[in-house]
Design a protein around this nucleic acid. Structure first.
Lengths: 224, 224
DNA sequence: TTGCTTATTGGTCGCATACTCAATAACATT
DNA sequence: AATGTTATTGAGTATGCGACCAATAAGCAA
């Protein structure tokens, strides 16, 4: 990426450099795994000496934790955008098809595409690594809460709009996410044969808990 | 555990020593994590020099893989015994209840008890570590298949006995296990607050898929 | 008892990690 | 243009890992 001759220095504002380091670490963690976020690895990525990374993050654990948060925050915004993208007048739009259902359908479709396998790997990675790194654990817990809240809000929106029937959106959100985590647990082992019942379990759970017909959240988009 | 003065040698038959090493490694992996299965750590456990462990396992990956299999095999036999343990009077205990349901109830009860948290941790650990260690990955896949088959057999038994109603025992087994893996994903992070809906998701899924009433597989034993 | 096989030891080597710290040079301010 | 701040380097320490190998001694067989 960035290659400079030895000895050449590029001096940046601390805030910018720090952000740059976290971003590089997040990329490494997402693609290669969180245990590959090492001072040297991140430094190489930026064309910088390892000592510099160590200067900004005296404890490596902190860097791993922040990198995880940065990565998952970006992923969440892609999978479950806070506001349906480019919708100034959504209250009028969803009168026909219902945007809440579209949001969930989009979520399940993206999540089961191979493009987001790295996200599944990252979560699996982080949940295990949290066993040893308390700094990371805190960030993982915070992200779990954030994802759950975001999902709950999507469900609540659909319920209030009359699209879903759900007595306890919070509990449903939890269960749907648990089902997703169960499916993504197999990402490194039986990923190929997970095809049939595994991938669709989360979607099935969601449809059942939201009072929707089977297949209502399927990618195809054809509703009943 | 085993402490000998330095220099004192205890010479054992290769097969016995090897088995001993795997057992010690399995214990370390179960309690402290698979990445703690190191030549030195296992050697310490046995009161033996590290070189010896390296002699029996020229590639450390092999030891980790075998240790995982040893640990999960033992756990599976405890959770889902091939034949109901001490089956002298269980048919009387569950009087009229049917033993297949008792087997599953026992499984869910044990699995959600804190005593088996280490088992959940081990699976989470192994599934992530499989990303980097191909030897381990093969063993994990084999164990996934074994657990699934064992669960499928329990379901099939109940179906044939008329206790359950299930069209596709295999698919149901898969889904139940996925739900369990989803719940155990939180073992290192939100373990304390997983109380409410997380733990019981797997049981709920099982009850629904087997045509049982809600709570039919609950620990208490009181159905309907 | 003597001898032989080999399980076991003790040490070394190379590599990778996090972390520390004095010296240096880039940039902003004067 | 001179100066001061500080971001950045380079080198060093300490720890841990797997892997390798000659020397040793334990236990069996003759």
């Amino acid at each position: 990426m960035t290659s400079r001759g030895p000895g050449k220095r590029v001096r940046k504002a601390p805030a910018e450099r720090r952000h740059e380091i976290v971003a590089a670490a997040a990329q490494v963690g997402l693609v290669e795994g969180l245990e590959c976020i090492t001072l040297r690895r991140v430094a190489d990525e930026l064309g910088v000496r390892p000592g510099l990374v160590g200067h900004y993050f005296p404890a490596a654990d902190t860097l791993v934790a922040e990198a995880f948060t940065a990565a998952t925050m970006a992923d969440l915004d892609t999978l479950l955008p806070e506001r349906p993208d480019g919708s100034g007048d959504h209250s009028r739009d969803d009168s026909g098809d219902g945007s809440a259902r579209a949001v969930l359908r989009r979520f399940f479709t993206l999540m089961s595409s191979t493009e987001f396998d790295n996200v599944s790997r990252l979560w699996l990675n982080a949940r295990h690594l949290s066993r040893y790194r308390p700094g990371l654990r805190e960030h993982v817990i915070a992200q779990e809460l954030l994802w759950c809240t975001r999902m709950e809000r999507a469900i609540t929106a659909g319920t209030e709009a009359g699209e879903f029937v759900c007595a306890d959106p919070r509990a449903t959100a939890v269960r749907v996410l648990v089902a997703i985590d169960g499916a993504s647990a197999y990402i490194n082992t039986s990923a190929e044969q997970r095809g049939a019942p595994i991938t669709h379990l989360a979607r099935t759970v969601a449809e059942a808990e939201l009072g929707l017909g089977a297949g209502a959240l399927e990618p195809a988009g054809e509703s009943s």
